[in-house]
């Protein structure tokens, strides 16, 4: 069943008539060069940028609905943990912003800390966290809000290959467990192949091909062949 539906989405500089249907619980990897419009597409879904066209969540038109009412979790590329809050408070931020009772906050934060194996980091400030730890805390901060949709913008781009591989595995397991509808931006083919239920290739703001990893890499559309060749 379609959960997110984008209809002819166009933005001022990046996207050109993008239409895409995403099923509930599906993990879509958006693949493309830097500047192709992948992050802009996430911003459109999150309601963080102006656009033309229509965005539907569960058949409800989201045009004009602000970010804070869209029920999306968004892990930005550089994570942007709040530097003045420790891990616990960073994760609890959204719950506090929504007036969640204190005991419920503690319960939820402790649960997500345990789920992501970061309980030992709860009193540390972002300046004392490694890149991988920051990614986990950022993910915990998004997940604790129990969003229906998770948006991840190149979350592993700044990590060394070994840490990225580990987090990727953990994330895939977590996604299967929570069944979150996810849009995952990357320009890394390995990441796309390992994670995606479906890969969507965006080139110069246009959606060029959508399909399984096998479709994309074994039977690429003509423009994608060029993209794959350039990336290799």
């Amino acid at each position: 069943m379609t959960f997110i539906s984008l209809r002819n989405v166009t933005t001022l500089y990046s996207l050109e008539n993008v239409s895409l249907d995403i099923a509930e619980g599906e993990l879509i990897v958006l693949l493309g060069f830097t500047g192709a419009g992948k992050s802009t597409l996430l911003n459109v879904v999150a309601g963080l940028t102006e656009y033309q066209g229509e965005v539907y969540f569960n058949q409800q038109n989201m045009n004009g609905i602000p970010t804070e009412r869209r029920d999306v979790g968004y892990l930005l590329q550089d994570i942007y943990l709040f530097p003045h809050l420790n891990t616990f408070d960073n994760i609890a931020f959204g719950l506090r912003a929504n007036s969640c009772p204190a005991d419920e906050i503690t319960e939820k934060v402790e649960a997500i800390l345990a789920l992501l194996h970061i309980g030992h980091l709860k009193k540390r400030y972002p300046k004392d966290l490694s890149g991988g730890e920051k990614q986990r805390v950022g993910l915990a901060r998004s997940l604790v809000m129990e969003p229906k949709i998770l948006l991840l913008d190149e979350p592993l781009a700044s990590l060394d290959p070994a840490t990225a591989r580990n987090i990727r595995k953990e994330f895939k397991a977590l996604h299967n467990r929570l069944n979150l509808t996810t849009l995952y931006v990357t320009h890394d083919f390995t990441e796309a192949r390992e994670l995606a239920d479906r890969i969507v290739v965006i080139i110069n703001g246009e959606l060029k091909q959508s399909g399984s990893a096998q479709d994309i890499f074994c039977q690429p559309a003509p423009e994608i062949q060029e993209f794959i060749a350039a990336a290799n």
């Binding site: 999150a46 963080l48 602000p66 970010t67 804070e68 009412r69 999306v72 979790g73 968004y74 930005l76 550089d78 994570i79 942007y80 709040f82 931020f93 959204g94 912003a97 929504n98 901060r141 998004s142 809000m145 948006l151």
Partner: peptide, 15 residues
Amino acid sequence: VSEEYIKAARTLKAS
């Protein structure tokens, strides 16, 4: 304060 922190806070449903 970087706009990205504000974005992050807004996605966490902060007013």
